[in-house]
Write a protein that binds this DNA or RNA. Structure first.
Lengths: 235, 235
DNA sequence: GTCATCCATACTGCATACAGTATGGAGCGA
DNA sequence: TCGCTCCATACTGTATGCAGTATGGATGAC
């Protein structure tokens, strides 16, 4: 890391340091902390779909004033976790099976494209990074480790590909879609497909071979295939 | 419309009316009005990229308090029109050529998919609606009408297809992307391709024939093709 | 003249205050 | 018993107040 290099240098030659090289713990804004807290409450089911989120009571619960709570709720509204009814306030969004399918569909589109881009942009270092995650995931999967770890590794693999694809707009959209998808998985989706590391292997090979079309098609099938295995409650 | 039907009915039988059938002018919230006002100021170049948007002065300019301005700025930040720097406030976002390309790319992806869905979902009424817009656009284009009307018709055609495609998640994302794209077109893009109604004709035919794959491919080429004709300033 | 330090300024982020409105139930009449 | 009206309540939307911090220029040291 550049910062530690500079720290190793003799005192007085710290001029190489640039802004942010030595970050200090800067507490995130209250509205951001509130946002994360409320999102977790929703994702973990502590706040049920349809529930009215009164600003005052939420503020008291979290030990802050209404203001940051308001702003957090508006942000969560954009992300699809709550609905704002004019004059009524915020209510926990009630996801439908249709909506879940749509989110997964769009996610498949964007990830497939990112995968295509990744195959075009990837360098040897990127391939090594993917290999490392794949090995971890493959082994963890075969050893039947903790499901949460498996999910985490699965996400890591997908995110790494998206980052190599390097379309920041797509990256930002996918971040939101993934969090929504995670919520759906935790609530209205009763049965999820196991992540297939055999398919991941094929995708990785296509990327390593810089075969963009193949990589994109494989990823599309990979996600759409798993989507068909999902079972939705309701609708 | 259901409302007028009911209004034609004899007095006293108004029980058929349901919520919202007779909407009254309900002023949008201040934060929403501020949001739109500031977005227009940015899109029309009244506020230059990089400019600092101080809450107080904006509030005074618009005749409201800081509160709705704050909330509007946060909303505009999510939409990509302003950047929020912690402790510094809001600055008009400075779009790059790369970012513009990425937005157009993602837009092409989503619209192409919507087009595919449209070809699967469309009914005869939908085809007629597209035909009507096409005819208008084609003729207006041949008569070389006001560029703003041409742009409007072009948008109408694309939006109609997206609506027939009926993926609401995609629809919402595209609405945002289109507004960003409009801004880029107005600022950093110096030369835009004329909308091709010949290509629109082919897309419409594919939808009418319910040929989803062809429709999707045509739309992808249509947008990606026009993207290549764009010339960007900077970067 | 150059550089570091200090401070006045301006503005954000959060808290509080106030006015207006949606809502559900009590009360009243049929 | 049923339905309408009216009102108390609770909560949102907006305004204002206050404390903390980033910034740029003035001031002084070298």
């Amino acid at each position: 890391m550049a910062a530690s290099d500079s720290l190793d240098a003799p005192a007085g030659t710290a001029g190489q340091l640039s802004r942010g090289d030595i970050p200090v713990m800067r507490r995130a804004s209250l509205r951001e902390q509130v946002r994360q807290a409320v999102e977790e409450l929703i994702v973990f089911g502590k706040l049920a779909p349809g529930e009215h989120l009164a600003e005052e009571s939420l503020a008291e619960l979290l030990g802050v004033s209404r203001q940051p709570v308001r702003e957090a709720l508006q942000s969560l509204s954009v992300a699809g976790f709550v609905d704002l009814r004019a004059g009524r306030g915020a209510f926990v969004h009630e996801p439908t099976a249709r909506e879940a399918r749509e989110v997964f569909h769009v996610r498949a589109l964007l990830e497939s494209d990112s995968c295509r881009l990744a195959a075009q942009n990837v360098d040897d270092d990127g391939v090594r990074r993917l290999e490392a995650i794949y090995t971890q995931g493959h082994e963890a999967s075969q050893r039947n480790e903790d499901p949460r770890r498996l999910i985490e590794l699965n996400r890591a693999f997908h995110r790494a590909i998206t980052e190599i694809g390097a379309n920041r707009v797509s990256l930002a959209l996918l971040a939101d879609l993934e969090r929504r998808a995670g919520w759906y998985l935790a609530t209205i989706i009763t049965n999820r497909a196991p992540s297939s590391w055999a398919e991941h292997r094929a995708i990785l090979d296509a990327i390593a071979a810089r075969d963009a079309d193949l990589a994109g098609d494989l990823m599309l099938n990979h996600i759409d295939h798993s989507r068909e295995l999902l079972e939705f409650t309701g609708q």
